[in-house]
Design a binder for these strands. Structure first.
Length: 910
RNA sequence: GGGCGAUUGGCGCAACGGUCAGCGCAGGUGCUUUACACGCACAAGGCUGGGGGUUCGAAUCCCUCAUCGCCCACCA
């Protein structure tokens, strides 16, 4: 910030497209985004505010969810930096195992290459290339938004340092007995011969059948010789090891504990009850195939059933099933059904639609397949993680998400962490093929430490992406090698994220941080609303209703988009974004709300330009409540400082933005700036100087308050300001982003309730005159004579404000008094304790005035009647709070007085 | 199927048990007021989705119905 633009050179229009990137360059070059040292507070302690960005996928591009997330974080970070806290926003990307691998896979497929052909090494190289090419995209987009992240120290969940942390966590948990190997059903693609993760599988509803098969009972039950099961996959009956009924099914109770002889196979299998079963579906009897269905697997575990795998890796029936062995699953289905029919065991067949999983790559129907996987046992983790939240150490905002977290934690099952992918952290488990030695190792092992064999192999699978991202708050801060940063900057202040990853990510971060650091990863979790399209449905590429934040910024600028996003925030869990698209081309046309926000950016620019244009001869000096309007403005400013500070401290971002806009636009611009024009143009040098100082003070403070959400335009204006009116020193070389936040206690002395009341009286008079003028279609230039009758105290206060009332309402002659007389031929307006008479001579339309007054009278009488009814209610008087009763009494008195005045005016009209 | 949330003037939203239910946009009227027409002023527009309950008092709390949406789990 070496050169500042003289006010006279402030361009007439503000262009975010040139200003925003240029400012960003200067901020970046200055190092202002690195950790701020902060300022010591009253106790001599510098508070800490470290925030880690939820790492976007390395291959990702910015979408509206990121835009919301990052706007909230940046507003919070900028506020805290100004507040004097030691602040750093840690940025980085996630390697995103599945989605990166899928993208690279598709790219290679487009080139006619299969990852299975080129092998693991070559494929990982291709992934690395992809990351190098696209990895910077989203970081550049975040920069376009003006986010004040520490970009010089970007993190990555697969960097060597990070990999070390991941490996240590795995090994420690393994040696502490938290990581174990177990069997689990995965989605197997018989064509690709690989497991497909849940996220890669595509569900599709397809027409199918429900086959009703008869299973003979070993011994008849009450004369019944066989039961009937319903299945969509009859071929899997070869692997059945049980039959289940619902726990709450009295009709089936007699069958529980009995035995069925499985047809074809001849296996004797038990009948048992389980909560998985819905007695209303099918026959109420469910065949259980633990090796080929996830639910059946769970039942098999619970009831200790054998898991019989009947398919090989190409989904052909394995040896041992006679004529069925060697058949593929479709042939097997036909033959099994035919066999049941031939033997009179096929009860009947129904049409049945059900969802089927397909391979995202080759579209083959996936086969649930039993395989070896690695798990994290959560028993020892969930207790502390639950306590961290119930005790209030970690707080959710809004509070309602606490329940989501606790419910999930309560139902938490062991976490399957192995993924059959190549792109990711490879599981550091080494096994000796010769002697069976196995261990989790920090260093790669080539020779078996037990038998010296070279036949040591590493587990081929990689870790779930969340396994590495759960370490984000501390693995990005030097853990495990150097704990010095963690000592001062962990736990982090807040995690800002979407509700759909409370379970996947938030909960796991809490568990791992508690385990390895013995402390929570963050104090607060702020869950923001999901941004939906205009029609209330989720934005999606296929629907074409999604809007690209870059398009928004190209059209309206980053400040406008940021402001728009914050004002959208309410207590609601979803918000709608009003992006409009061309019906013909589907192209983004615009967003009215963002356009409004752009209007506010322009308003700030223009108001600032006006102030700066009028600073000629400005001498820095203290603000002063020299006039009633000054006292009012400074009081309002003080309240706004307190309110904005409170709102940001309590994560009320929407209120912060909306209230600030109302204040700056409707109070500062519409009233105060207008009111200062007189003094600025008068020949009175002292009055002009004071108006300049006050305007500069109000503008300076407003810019500081607005900066967290509107960093660019506020910084651009600040750049043009000759000196800070708050500290009275030239601020060349300092950025607004590094300036001090207006501390409420420094403004508290301006709060002046009486001044606010007095100003409201003057505003009432101005509004009454303007309104009357509009009703009679009189030009604003037409001078009018006005008399105001007010109670003594109010009359005196109004008397001090006649100058500006006359100016704003174009009043030529203003009389104020407790006994002011109504001039001949005038219109009267009753507003609270004021009676305002506007002289119109012969123009007064008696009928119109009468009906207007009658309308007002009727309204007042109606409200008075209601109020009196309440006051007559014994229950109300007995139970309502005294201040509420008192407020009602005062209101009744006011209404009664208003009615008297209105009646008098009506009588006067004749 | 489970969980969460919404329903307030034409549209988007506030109001979180107690003043005449507020605000913005759109629409209306009038203003080339020398910061801003991306502006200013003025006026109009609502028995708060239906029904029931709790309470002295309900847009607000409870129940129910209807409609809509989001998240999670997926049905043998």
């Amino acid at each position: 910030m070496t050169e500042s633009t003289p006010a006279s050179e402030m361009p007439k229009t503000y262009d975010p497209q040139t200003t925003e990137p240029a400012l960003m360059e200067r901020w970046l070059a200055s190092g202002a985004f690195k950790r701020s040292k902060g300022r010591a507070g009253a106790e001599g302690v510098v508070e800490d505010c470290t925030v880690t960005i939820p790492p976007p996928n390395v291959t990702g591009i910015l979408h509206m969810g990121h835009a919301m997330d990052d706007t909230i974080q940046d507003a919070f970070i900028r506020y805290n930096r100004m507040r004097g806290r030691s602040t750093r926003w840690i940025v980085g990307t996630d390697h995103a195992g599945i989605s990166t691998q899928t993208k690279v896979d598709k790219k290679l497929k487009g080139e006619g290459i299969s990852r299975l052909e080129i092998g693991r090494e070559a494929f990982l190289e291709a992934c690395q290339e992809w990351r190098d090419e696209y990895g910077g995209t989203i970081i550049r987009q975040i920069k376009r938004m003006g986010c004040s992240c520490d970009f010089d120290d970007e993190k990555f969940t697969m960097s060597p340092e990070y990999a070390l942390a991941v490996r240590k966590v795995f090994c420690d948990w393994y040696h502490d007995g938290l990581i174990y190997r177990g069997k689990r059903i995965v989605n197997w693609c018989p064509s690709c011969r690989t497991a497909i993760s849940d996220d890669e599988a595509e569900y599709r509803d397809e027409p199918g059948h429900l086959w009703y098969l008869r299973y003979p009972l070993k011994e008849p039950v009450d004369g019944v010789e066989h039961i009937v099961v319903a299945t969509t996959r009859p071929e899997t009956m070869l692997g059945d090891t049980g039959v289940a009924v619902a726990e709450d099914d009295p009709e089936k109770a007699a069958f529980v504990g009995k035995t069925v002889v499985l047809p074809i196979v001849g296996r004797e299998i038990p009948i048992f009850s389980d909560w998985h079963v819905d007695k209303g579906f099918g026959t109420g009897f469910v065949k259980v195939t633990p090796a080929h269905d996830p639910n059946d697997f769970a039942m098999g575990e619970a009831h200790d059933l054998p898991k019989v795998n009947i398919f090989d890796e190409t989904a052909h029936v394995v040896e041992g099933y006679g004529e069925f062995s060697g058949l593929d699953r479709d042939e097997a289905r036909e033959r099994v059904v035919a066999w049941f029919e031939e033997h009179g065991l096929l009860d009947h067949v129904e049409e049945h639609e059900h969802s089927v999983m397909h391979c995202y790559r080759c579209d083959t129907t996936l086969e649930p397949w039993l395989s070896e996987q690695w798990f994290v046992a959560v028993d020892r983790l969930k207790g502390p993680a639950t306590e961290a939240v119930t005790s209030g150490k970690v707080t959710f905002h809004p509070e309602r998400w606490t329940q989501t977290y606790l419910t999930w934690m309560e139902n938490l099952k062991d976490w399957c962490i192995s993924r059959q992918l190549w792109w990711g952290h490879r599981i550091p488990i080494f096994t000796c093929a010769d002697c069976g030695w196995e261990d989790a190792c920090m260093e790669d092992v080539e020779v078996c430490p037990e038998c010296g064999s070279h036949a040591v192999v590493q587990d081929p699978d990689v870790l779930d992406t969340w396994f590495s991202s759960q370490l984000w708050t501390f693995a990005t801060q030097g853990w495990p090698e150097d704990a010095s940063e963690l000592e001062r900057h962990h736990p982090t202040k807040v995690l800002v994220t979407a509700r759909d990853i409370i379970a996947l990510w938030v909960a796991r971060m809490i568990m791992s941080s508690l385990y390895f650091l013995g402390e929570i990863p963050f104090e607060d979790v702020y869950i923001y609303a999901i941004i939906l399209a205009k029609d209330g449905t989720r934005m999606s590429k296929s629907k074409g209703n999604g809007v690209d934040p870059l398009d928004l910024m190209a059209r309206y600028g980053a400040d406008a988009m940021r402001f728009n996003l914050l004002t959208l925030i309410t207590n609601n869990q979803d918000v709608r974004f009003d992006a409009e698209f061309s019906k013909k081309t589907g192209e983004f046309i615009g967003s009215p709300r963002t356009e409004q926000a752009k209007g506010f950016v322009t308003k700030i620019w223009n108001a600032s330009r006006f102030v700066l244009m009028n600073l000629e001869g400005y001498e820095p000096g203290p603000a002063e409540a020299a006039t009633p309007e000054d006292a009012w403005m400074l009081s309002r400013l003080a309240r706004q400082v307190a309110r904005a500070t409170e709102a940001l401290e309590t994560y009320e971002f929407g209120d912060y933005a909306r209230e600030l806009q109302g204040f700056f636009w409707n109070e500062v611009c519409d009233w105060y700036v207008e009111l200062c024009k007189g003094r600025l143009n008068s020949g009175d040098a002292d009055a002009r100087r004071q108006a300049q100082r006050n305007l500069a003070y109000v503008l300076d403070t407003s810019l500081r308050l607005l900066h967290p959400v509107m960093p660019f335009v506020t910084e651009a204006v600040w750049d043009a300001m000759p000196a800070s009116a708050v500290d009275g020193e030239p601020h060349d070389g300092r950025f607004l982003m590094e300036a001090a936040w207006p501390e409420p206690e420094n403004y508290a002395r301006w709060v002046n309730e009486a001044a606010e009341h007095d100003f409201d009286l003057a505003r009432s008079v101005v509004s009454a005159v303007r309104s009357t003028r509009a009703r009679y279609r009189l030009s604003p230039k037409e001078p009018l004579a006005v008399a105001v009758k007010a109670p003594g105290q109010d009359a005196a206060r109004l008397g001090e404000q006649t100058a500006f009332i006359c100016e704003l309402a174009h009043v030529s002659e203003l009389t104020v008094g407790s006994d002011a007389a109504k001039p001949q031929g005038s219109v009267s307006v009753v507003d609270g304790a004021l009676e305002i008479f506007i002289a119109l001579g012969g123009l007064v339309d008696l009928d119109a005035e009468r009906s207007r007054l009658e309308k007002a009278l009727a309204k007042a009488r109606k409200e008075l009647a209601g109020t009196e009814r309440t006051l007559a209610n014994q229950g109300f008087l007995a139970k309502a709070a005294t201040e509420v009763v008192e407020a009602k009494r005062i209101r009744a008195k006011e209404l009664a007085e208003t009615i008297v005045r209105l009646e008098a005016q009506l009588a006067d009209l004749g």
